[in-house]
Amino acid sequence: MSGMNRGKGFIKGISGSMWAGIGLIFLFAVVIENYLGARNVMNILRNSSVLVVVAAGMTMIILLGEIDMSVGGVITIAATSAGLYLQSVETVTIGNVLLGVLICAAVGLAFGIFNGYMIGIRKFNYWLVSFGSMSMGFGLAKGITNGGVLSGFDTKFRWISMGEVLGLSMCIVWALLICAAVLFLQYRTRFGLHLYAIGDSEACALNSGINVRKTRFLAYAFSGLMAGLAAMLLLARTNSAGAAVGEGYEFNAIAAVVVGGTAMDGGKGGFKGTIFGAVFISAMKNGLQLIGLSNYWQQVLLGVVIIAIILYDVISTKLRVKKSLRRVYSDG
C-alpha cells in the first residue's frame, strides 16, 4: 500500500467514537493548562500502561465475539504469587527479579492455557469457564495470603515500572514494546486475520479450513499471558499485592476495547482502537482530576463520558447507514 493509501486507511480506521474522544481531549487541553504538556502526557501514558497490556489480550477475545472475564483474577494471582516469592527472599538480586517476572508470566499463561483448553478445545461456555477462572484466581490469591496485603517490594523489582530510560518510564517502554508486538500479531499474521474471520463468521472460517480450535486456544492463552505481564507492571507500580489488586480490570479492559471501536459481537475493530481506548480512559480520568472535581464526581463524569462516546459512534453509524441507503440502489 502506498504511503497515501496508508494514510487514508489509517484515517478510515478511526472509528466515530475515537473522533469524539479526540474532541473531548482537545476540550480538556483548552480548559486545563499543560494538559497536553510532556509531563502530563507521560502521566497519562503511565496510568494507562497496565490497562493497555490487559486490553491487548482482551481485544483478541472480543474479536472472536467472546469475553475473557478471568483477567482480573489472573492479574491478582500472578501478582500475588510473584509478590510472595519476592518477599520470601532475603536480599533481592537481578536473578530474583527475573524469576519474579517469569512467575507472573507463567501464572498468567497457565490460566490462559486452562481457559484456552476448556473453551477452545473442549468447547465449554466461555462465560462460565472464564468466570470460574476468575473466581479461582481471586480466590487463590486470597487464600495464600490469608486475606492480607503484601507491600513493599525491592527497588530492583520496582524498576520494571518505575525506572526510566530515555525519559520514559519503564512501564511505558514495556507497554510500547508489547503494543508493537501485538499490533504485528493482530494485523500482519495469519493468526490475527483468523481471529477476525472466526468472529465475523465462524461457519465460514470452519469451511475454509481454519483451525478454529487452535486459534481460540492461542487467543485465550495469549490473553492469560498478557494478564500476567500486566500483573508484573502493576505490582512494580503499585508496590502491593493481595486479593484485590486486579479487581475491576476485566470490566475496564472490556470498556477500553469497546471505546476503541471494537464491537462486542466480533469481527470488527482491532487493537489500534484499543490502544486509543485505554489511553483515552486514562486521559479522561486525568483530566477530570485536574479540573478539580472530587473523586466522587469524577466517577459520575467518567460514566457520562463513556456513554457519550459510544452514543456518538452508534448514532453516527445509524445516520451514515441511513444516508447510504437513501442513494437509491443501482445494481452493479
Partner: peptide, 26 residues
C-alpha cells in the same frame, strides 16, 4: 458464508493467506 466485515480479498484467501518472510511469516 461470506465474512461480511472482511474484504473480498480476505474472503477469497481466508485460511490460506499468502505469507512472506521465512522468519516472521508476515
Amino acid at each position: 458464508s461470506m465474512m461480511p466485515n472482511r474484504t473480498v480479498a480476505q474472503n477469497i484467501f481466508v485460511g490460506r493467506e499468502p505469507v512472506k518472510g521465512k522468519l516472521l511469516k508476515q
